[in-house]
Deep mutational scan, measured.
Amino acid sequence: TRVETATETAWISLVTALHLVLGLSAVLGLL
């Protein structure tokens, strides 16, 4: 259904953003 697709997209966006933040923090930590 469309609701499931929207929820899945939201989760993917959330996980991606989380990985970006963690990756950025790791890079800044190494610097």
Rank of each mutant, 00 (worst) to 15 (best):
L30A: 14
A17C: 10
L31Q: 04
T5G: 10
S25D: 15
L14S: 08
A17Y: 05
G23T: 00
G23N: 14
A10R: 08
G23H: 01
A17G: 09
S25T: 11
L18N: 07
E4G: 08
L31T: 12
A26M: 04
T16Y: 14
I12N: 13
A26C: 03
S25Y: 11
T9Y: 07
T5F: 01
L14M: 03
A26F: 04
V15Y: 03
V21G: 12
A10M: 00
V15K: 11
G29F: 14
W11P: 13
R2F: 03
T1A: 05
L28G: 02
E4M: 03
V3Y: 00
A26E: 01
R2W: 14
S25A: 01
V27G: 08
L22G: 13
H19W: 04
A26V: 06
A26Q: 00
E8Q: 01
L22D: 01
L20F: 01
L30Y: 07
R2P: 07
T7Q: 03
V21A: 15
L30D: 04
T5K: 02
L24G: 03
G23M: 11
L31I: 13
G23C: 15
T16C: 09
E8H: 00
L31E: 01
S13E: 05
V15M: 06
R2I: 09
E4R: 06
T9D: 04
L18I: 07
L31M: 12
T5N: 03
A26R: 04
V15F: 07
L18E: 12
L14D: 01
L30T: 09
L31F: 05
S13R: 06
G23V: 07
V15W: 01
L14W: 05
E4V: 10
L24I: 09
L22S: 15
T16D: 01
L14A: 02
H19E: 04
G29W: 03
L20A: 14
S13L: 15
V27D: 02
S25Q: 06
E8T: 02
E8M: 06
H19Y: 13
T9G: 11
V3H: 06
G29C: 08
V27H: 10
A17F: 06
E4A: 09
A10W: 14
T9P: 14
V27R: 08
I12G: 11
L30I: 10
V21H: 14
S25W: 14
H19R: 10
L14C: 02
L28M: 15
T9C: 00
T5P: 02
H19I: 04
T7A: 15
L30K: 01
E4Y: 10
V3T: 09
V21I: 09
A6F: 02
A6G: 08
H19M: 00
T7S: 11
S13Y: 03
L20D: 05
T1S: 11
W11N: 03
A6M: 15
T9F: 13
A26W: 00
T5L: 03
G23R: 10
A6Q: 14
L28N: 03
H19T: 10
T16G: 02
L28I: 03
L31S: 13
V3F: 06
A6T: 05
R2N: 02
S25F: 13
T5R: 13
A26N: 04
L24F: 01
A17L: 08
V3L: 10
T7F: 04
T9A: 13
T1D: 10
T7D: 11
L30N: 11
V21N: 09
E4C: 14
A10C: 03
L22F: 05
V3N: 11
E4S: 04
A10T: 08
T5Q: 09
A17Q: 00
L31G: 07
V27C: 03
V27W: 15
L14Q: 12
A26I: 09
L28H: 06
L24V: 10
V3D: 11
T5H: 04
S13T: 10
S13M: 15
E8V: 01
G29L: 09
E4W: 09
W11G: 11
E8G: 09
G23Q: 00
I12T: 05
A17V: 08
V21E: 06
H19G: 15
T5V: 06
E4I: 07
I12Y: 11
V15A: 04
G23F: 04
L31R: 13
L22E: 04
V27K: 08
L18T: 10
R2K: 06
G29Y: 14
L24Y: 00
T9K: 02
W11Y: 11
V27Q: 00
A10K: 07
L28C: 10
S13N: 05
V27T: 01
V3W: 08
S25P: 03
L28Y: 12
R2M: 14
L24W: 01
V3A: 12
W11V: 12
L14N: 09
S13F: 15
A10G: 08
A17R: 07
V3E: 06
V15S: 03
V3M: 09
A10E: 14
L22Y: 07
L14G: 07
T16I: 14
L20V: 08
S13G: 09
T1I: 03
A17K: 03
T7I: 01
E4K: 10
T16F: 13
T1W: 08
L20R: 12
L24A: 05
L28F: 06
L31H: 02
A10H: 00
T1E: 05
R2V: 07
L22K: 09
L22M: 08
L22N: 04
I12M: 06
V15R: 10
L20C: 10
T9N: 15
L22A: 12
L14T: 01
L24H: 10
H19D: 07
R2C: 11
V21K: 12
T16N: 10
T1G: 06
L31P: 05
L30V: 10
V27F: 01
E4P: 11
V15N: 01
T16P: 12
A17E: 12
A6D: 05
L31D: 01
G29R: 10
G23L: 06
L22C: 15
L20M: 03
T5A: 04
A26K: 09
T9H: 02
V3C: 09
A10L: 05
G29N: 08
T7W: 15
V15H: 04
L20H: 01
L14K: 08
L28K: 03
L22H: 00
A10V: 09
L24T: 10
L28S: 02
A26G: 08
I12V: 11
G23P: 02
S13A: 15
A26T: 08
T5D: 09
L30R: 09
E8R: 02
T5S: 10
T1H: 05
T16L: 04
V27S: 12
I12P: 01
A17T: 15
R2Y: 04
L30M: 15
T7L: 10
L14V: 03
L30S: 05
R2D: 05
